[in-house]
């Protein structure tokens, strides 16, 4: 068996919550000298162990504030874990928030190159994919319009089209399948399904159990920064439904 796609070992992520507000430099230094700056430690994730094999499609379920997005950010390399290690093999395409890398004064066409570069792809590569991206986003007539004049649906469509065009090894999806109208949603679901055939590894966050069942073969439940259940998608979804209806 080859190396797992994602391996998370004893990973914890801590944030400092300021217990008192220090809003100017003078106060900060005085408090620092008096050692009065206290932080409340907040462990968003605690001792996470997770191994994802290549080709696995893992759904991540959990209530708000359970640490789902933090986990995805750590795996995507945006956040550095406080403790433990995360090793990822392969090209990661994070779809955390579509269109985050857009510059609103830039036209759609220019943004395709910019966004592609943000994800680490060369101009040549994007040039090859350009027509595919434009066609998928259905924004042919808007390519020279600044993105600031786009509707949020158009933005999301363009973002999705770029992020999905790059054939990653690992796809990180954070509730992105709820964008656009029903037609586009179907299309993007179909696009992601077609990526599965190429053996892409997926991490999928959603509040919709149905979507998780449709897409994933495995699932985990996060609660207060800990993995409380992991296994086959059906079992876990059932358990999650129980948690939801039982008011926990």
């Amino acid at each position: 068996m080859s190396k797992p796609a994602i391996e998370v070992k004893n990973m914890s992520m801590m944030f400092n919550l300021n217990s008192e507000k220090v809003d100017n430099l003078k106060e900060y230094f005085i408090k620092l000298l008096k050692r009065q700056i206290h932080f409340t430690e907040f462990w968003a994730l605690k001792d996470i162990n997770l191994t994802v094999e290549k080709g696995d499609r893992v759904g991540i379920l959990g209530f708000n504030g359970a640490g789902k997005s933090t986990l995805l950010k750590v795996i995507a390399g945006v956040l550095k874990p406080t403790e433990g290690t995360v090793s990822v093999s392969g090209v990661v395409a994070p779809m955390l928030e579509l269109g985050a890398g857009f510059d609103s004064n830039y036209s759609g066409k220019e943004n395709i190159y910019l966004y592609g570069a943000t994800m680490g792809y060369s101009r040549k590569f994007i040039e090859k994919k350009f027509d595919e991206i434009v066609e998928f986003s259905e924004l042919q007539n808007f390519m020279n319009v600044p993105v600031k004049n786009y509707s949020s649906g158009m933005r999301a469509r363009l973002g999705f089209a770029i992020a999905s065009a790059v054939e990653p090894d690992i796809l990180i999806l954070d509730e992105v399948l709820s964008v656009g109208d029903a037609k586009f949603r179907k299309k993007s679901e179909a696009k992601i399904m077609s990526m599965f055939d190429k053996g892409v590894t997926v991490l999928f966050v959603s509040h919709s159990v149905d979507q998780v069942l449709k897409i994933c073969n495995k699932a985990i439940i996060l609660d207060h920064g800990k993995i409380i259940a992991s296994g086959e998608a059906e079992e876990i979804c059932e358990e999650y439904n129980k948690m939801v209806s039982g008011g926990k």
Partner: peptide, 20 residues
């Protein structure tokens, strides 16, 4: 080396947008 494209794109963007 991987992200040199990004550097190029940002430089390009800054210059293009400055006087747009």
């Amino acid at each position: 080396y991987k992200y040199r494209g990004l550097m190029y794109e940002i430089v390009r963007k800054n210059i293009k947008l400055q006087y747009r």
